[in-house]
Write a protein that binds this DNA or RNA. Sequence first.
DNA 1: TATGAATGAGGATTCATTCAT
DNA 2: AATGAATGAATCCTCATTCAT
Lengths: 200, 200, 200, 200
Amino acid sequence: MQPIRRRQLILATIRCMSEYGFARTTIARIGKTAGVTPSIIHHYFGGKDDLLEATVRFLLEQLRQNVVRQLTQATNARQRVEAIIAANFADDQFNDETLAAWMALWAQAQHHHGLHRLQQIYARRLQSNLRHALRQLVDENAVQRGAFGLAALVDGLWLNCSLNGEANGALARAVALNYIDKLLRTAQPVPTQSVESDHV
Amino acid sequence: MQPIRRRQLILATIRCMSEYGFARTTIARIGKTAGVTPSIIHHYFGGKDDLLEATVRFLLEQLRQNVVRQLTQATNARQRVEAIIAANFADDQFNDETLAAWMALWAQAQHHHGLHRLQQIYARRLQSNLRHALRQLVDENAVQRGAFGLAALVDGLWLNCSLNGEANGALARAVALNYIDKLLRTAQPVPTQSVESDHV
Amino acid sequence: MQPIRRRQLILATIRCMSEYGFARTTIARIGKTAGVTPSIIHHYFGGKDDLLEATVRFLLEQLRQNVVRQLTQATNARQRVEAIIAANFADDQFNDETLAAWMALWAQAQHHHGLHRLQQIYARRLQSNLRHALRQLVDENAVQRGAFGLAALVDGLWLNCSLNGEANGALARAVALNYIDKLLRTAQPVPTQSVESDHV
Amino acid sequence: MQPIRRRQLILATIRCMSEYGFARTTIARIGKTAGVTPSIIHHYFGGKDDLLEATVRFLLEQLRQNVVRQLTQATNARQRVEAIIAANFADDQFNDETLAAWMALWAQAQHHHGLHRLQQIYARRLQSNLRHALRQLVDENAVQRGAFGLAALVDGLWLNCSLNGEANGALARAVALNYIDKLLRTAQPVPTQSVESDHV
DNA sequence: TATGAATGAGGATTCATTCAT
DNA sequence: AATGAATGAATCCTCATTCAT
């Protein structure tokens, strides 16, 4: 029963975050959304904070799996960069509800120890992935700036779509890929080097 | 007395948003931060929601004035695009406290009627400004995509800096200007056209 | 199985009372301390109240047996008085954990029907034992006052040791025996009378 | 308003402790007893714990004033010992309600940091007063044991009366004074020494 | 203009208990 | 015999708001 209830409650949390925002996502509302008693939440999670963290972990894990899946299909360095980006706009994740939930949770991360840690893990992982992929394509200077800019663009597209209340994955992908294209076209190609395995 | 108190309370709200986040920014805390009684807030503002809206309006107005100031110094189309971007990362606005406050308030905008309206005004204004400036430099297709991408990048840089808790204005400006540079270098130049006046 | 589980749960209750106090001694905590499911408690006892009563009964029975054991070794009236007192400070009972548990349970007795009854039984039994023993040593007036004072002293030593968090049985015994000594030395000896059998 | 409300709430707390015991003395019940909203309690006290501590402090202060009052009327060392004891059984304090409240609060002291500290202050103060007074009457050995025994007797009389639900101040006083009488009669008188001022 | 008193709604959490298995 | 799921009541506390002064 435990895994079922936990998943059920995490999904309810995402829905509530999306519908009510962080401040008005209460244990009672999550319970009602999931169709269970509020008490159950304390039974399966230690408390509200634990549920929130579990929810973010769930979202992060989905994202990570998307990245892994896309990366395994990439056959060269450029495709790897594009794969990382594309994974962030995959349709199963990049939808209105998830977007709004992310927004609500990320905004609170600064003021919530557990969420803050998870947010930093996400940021570091994205940076690491991007740098690793870029390093085989452009010189080190462009790697740093490119990774930073790409990460910002990805987050910005999420934010924009979230604020507009409309998750347009295709457009977001197009803009991001266009950015990569510009990045690679204007940057110095990297001198020949051995290809390392991707790490996620 | 009124304008003094209102400003005082708005600044206290920004500080609280930054320090405690949206959910824990209470009337009591704002009052204490401002050094006044919580009741005062109801006296000078109708209630909490009105104070929040006034705060966002205050922040938006600061931003608008920055944009205007920078635009007046621009002498050609490219400089106008850069001016709009630069205004968003001006040091007097782009600091840790303001960033965190924005983040907290924007995240809530989806779920708060008044804030939502203001957020849309901001988004539309930025789009309009960018399109207007770009239209003199690239073809219409690139205008749409470029404005969308630039806006996303700007928001993304804000978001990233906010989440990292470190407002690095210089880096943000560099990344954004670099993006403009790439944008203009790869896009088709626009055929000669009449120059319209900027609208803000 | 029943007697084993019941004893196990009673001992866990004593430990919890000592460690957490009455208010925070919950079914869940008792269960965890005993290493069993909270549900078990309802299985072997009707509910929390029944467990509490059983616990007090267990403690009272231990005390009663101590008194009986000590009394059987007494060979004269004075030793009988001393035996009753000594039994209350026997090392197997007069330890930190039991003391704290007593304290927690006794304080609640006023407000708990079942415990109140047991507390009164204890008080009456102690009075009865003391009066019976004293009656062979001092006149009736001193019997009443002596029994009352001795009982108060015994309880007071328990209370004091409990509040100090240090069960010093030797000191308590010394003080109590000293009181008896003073009592018998200053009181009028009773005129010759027939010796009755002790009742416990 | 503050001092009025605080006193009102403290008295209500004492009444509730007496009537319901510690575990069932809730903020709501205290509020209802005092005829105010539960929220008020958080307004005038930080929370439940602060109210409990304030209540114990109030009771301790009453007791302290009783002791001081009685001591000022004592003209010799023996009267001083008796004054300390008598103060603990003064009719304005030694009544059913106060007794029951003490009992409920003291029992919880072991498990409540704030109350524990206050309880220790009380215990040390009583010991100190008794030793100081006894030191002028008996030798040092008897001082230690006498102070310990007297304190235990006092607490025991409180406990007994509380458990019996009947505060018989006259009887308690008689028993305690009788104990002092025995103590002084059997102890070695102290060699001539200078009389120090009483400290409370 | 400003304060502090007071309230009531709502929030997270705890807990004894019941029930199906 | 024993477990774990589930609940609903109750508890402490927070907070926006109102009102008299």
